[in-house]
Design a protein around this nucleic acid. Structure first.
Length: 548
RNA sequence: GCGCCUGUAGCUCAAUUGGAUAGAGUGUUGGAUUCCGAUUCCAAAGGCUGGGGGUUCGAUUCCCUUCAGGCGCGCCA
């Protein structure tokens, strides 16, 4: 809203002194508060076009500015030619009034204008349990979805459920082998690429418990049974874990349906029609080398089965056909190689791949006291997401996975995460919220209610103005976090905002303020800050305790 | 060998997309609070942004090169 006021003021001045209309006019909040509330580098940008030194242009601009002295305190030149703007306290009183009027909607915007976005995340194959990388994927995906919702998009949360292909046969054979072991065949051969996790033994044990040796002969029907049983068990566990993290998705897209609905065949025919596929060595190849990539790849194996590329492309096509304006997909770094192939394929089919936004997150390492942790001390096995949830709880898990930017390696400090104190950033945020709640409760005990008509012009303490600025910028932070698909932008912002509240709380008496009017204004300010903290935590998918 | 990602304070990470004196947290040292929650606040110390070149008013950011780590490079997904 500040920009809305100053942009035309500046543009008028620029026109007056003859700066070209196309010169970019951009304001930013300087890191250093001594540089004012807003800073503009237009004088430096136009130095070339004007053929004058930046500082001289800045002087001309300032002389030509026509602004309201009730809102802007002063405008000055600094450094190589920055123009710094300082607002009055009265300006911030107005801002706070506007923010207050938003109520619970504080932080929401209509950036997306109701457009449809599909966010695909987790999409873990039902062949095992979720591990730490999936936890990061789940946390980011879910919060990115929240961010889109808060910025006015129509969001569909989707899980691509892949229960076709080799991996499932592998699962079936692994379970079968463990089942035979459980029946007393100690040296029953285990498949070479089989899944060696302990959970396979558990599945086998449960089958033995329920059905005895009914499936011991291992016929094709038996293997099918093991495949289905394994899938069902794994998927149940996955969903259980996600529920613990408070994650619920709208659509579970079944890869199998692409085969039964003929989508795979259709896409093969289309590639053939476009003369982009050819047969060699009894397999079908896609001419990726004609689409700007290194080499051609197989899309149908000589066995007649498609490779992963084909269903992946068909899946994207389905999403395009559903009319999404934007498709976000989130993968771990190990999937990075598949992206260009699939994108090239759907582009060749005539779809606009600019609508697909692929996010890649790097790996997670777990550490404690500077040492890398691979195994859970509790179970002695590989660390699963459930183990982590058991140890530190869902709030900490989600926050830790969100507090680093997506495309960097993440070190999860188990010692810090376990810490239920000020060292742990999650508690720092939640405490700010809880502190406001208990303070308002205390005020109510004294029969002091939050006064909706409080006089904000009384708020001119440095700490008060600082907090108001955070409330004012909250919506921008949500927008920025959303458009960048970087939850970390929001976690950082909220930490700073919480700090601003704590400073305010420390320096400004609220309930025992000097006057009732000041008390009311501060109490109201705190209550608006509470909404900001609450909404922020909600977007991150973290609980908002009123007591701790 | 090739492609992608990363390298910033002792440690874990930021830096508004090319801006001002590179900032936070943690750790270390020292302080504050008779009163709304001490899970709080304030201060100090800590840096050749891996190294070397280049582009320009200005580079952690862009380009080249080199070193180090991670992830990929299948008719597996």
């Amino acid at each position: 809203m500040q920009k809305k006021y100053i942009t035309p003021v500046f543009r008028n001045a620029l026109n007056k002194i003859g700066v070209p209309e196309e010169t970019e006019l951009h304001f930013e909040a300087p890191k250093n508060p001594d540089h004012g509330d807003f800073s503009c580098n237009v004088a430096m940008r136009s130095a070339k076009a004007m053929k004058k030194p930046p500082r001289a242009i800045a002087e001309e601009i300032i002389a030509a500015l026509d602004y309201d002295a009730k809102l802007i305190e002063n405008v000055s030149i600094a450094g190589p030619g920055f123009i710094n703007i300082k607002f009055t306290d009265g300006f911030y009183a107005e801002v706070l009034k506007t923010m207050d009027a938003l109520g619970d909607q504080l932080g929401r915007s209509n950036l997306g204008e109701g457009r449809k976005v599909n966010v695909e995340y987790i999409s873990c194959n039902p062949t095992g349990l979720l591990h730490l990388g999936h936890g990061r994927n789940a946390s980011i995906g879910d919060t990115v979805s929240n961010l889109y919702e808060w910025t006015g998009w129509d969001v569909t949360r989707e899980y691509y459920f892949n229960n076709a292909g080799n991996q499932m046969n592998n699962l079936a054979k692994s379970v079968y082998a463990r089942y035979m072991e459980a029946l007393g065949n100690a040296d029953f051969p285990f498949p070479e690429d089989g899944y060696r996790g302990e959970y396979i033994k558990q599945i086998a044990a449960e089958i033995k418990e329920e059905f005895g040796d009914k499936y011991k002969s291992g016929t094709e029907d038996d293997i099918t049974f093991f495949r289905k049983a394994g899938e069902k068990w794994c998927f149940r566990e996955i969903k259980k874990t996600l529920t613990r993290m408070n994650i619920e998705q709208d659509v579970f897209f079944n890869e199998d349906s692409l085969y039964t609905d003929g989508k795979i065949d259709a896409i093969i025919q289309d590639f053939k029609k476009l003369d982009l596929a050819y047969e060699k060595d009894e397999a079908l190849w896609l001419k990726l080398s004609e689409m700007g990539l290194e080499e051609d790849r197989v899309i149908v194996k000589s066995s007649g089965e498609p490779t992963y590329r084909l269903p992946d492309m068909a899946y994207h096509r389905e999403k395009f056909e559903l009319g999404y304006d934007l498709m976000v997909e989130l993968f771990g770094a190990d999937h990075i190689a598949t992206v260009p192939d699939v994108q090239a394929g759907i582009k060749a089919l005539g779809y606009d791949t600019n609508k697909v936004r692929t996010l890649i997150h790097q790996f997670v390492t777990l550490s404690e006291n500077g040492e890398q942790v691979k195994m859970s001390k509790r179970t002695g096995k590989n660390y699963t997401l459930d183990d982590l949830l058991d140890e530190v709880g869902p709030d900490v898990v989600r926050f830790f996975f969100l507090m680093r930017s997506v495309n960097t390696h993440l070190e999860f400090d188990l010692g810090l995460a376990r810490e239920q104190s000020d060292k742990n950033p999650v508690f720092y945020l939640q405490y700010a919220h809880a502190r406001i709640c208990s303070m308002i409760a205390k005020a109510e005990d004294l029969e002091i209610k939050v006064n909706d008509n409080a006089d904000f012009t009384l708020l001119n303490h440095k700490a008060e103005i600082s907090l108001i600025k955070y409330i004012m910028n909250f919506g921008e932070a949500v927008k920025s976090s959303s458009t960048k698909c970087e939850p970390q932008v929001l976690t950082d912002f909220l930490r700073e905002a919480a700090a601003a509240f704590h400073v305010f709380y420390h320096e400004c008496r609220i309930i025992s303020a000097d006057s009732e009017e000041l008390r009311d204004a501060r109490l109201k300010l705190a209550s608006i800050a509470r909404i900001m903290m609450k909404n922020g935590l909600v977007i991150l998918g973290i609980t908002t305790p009123e007591h701790m």
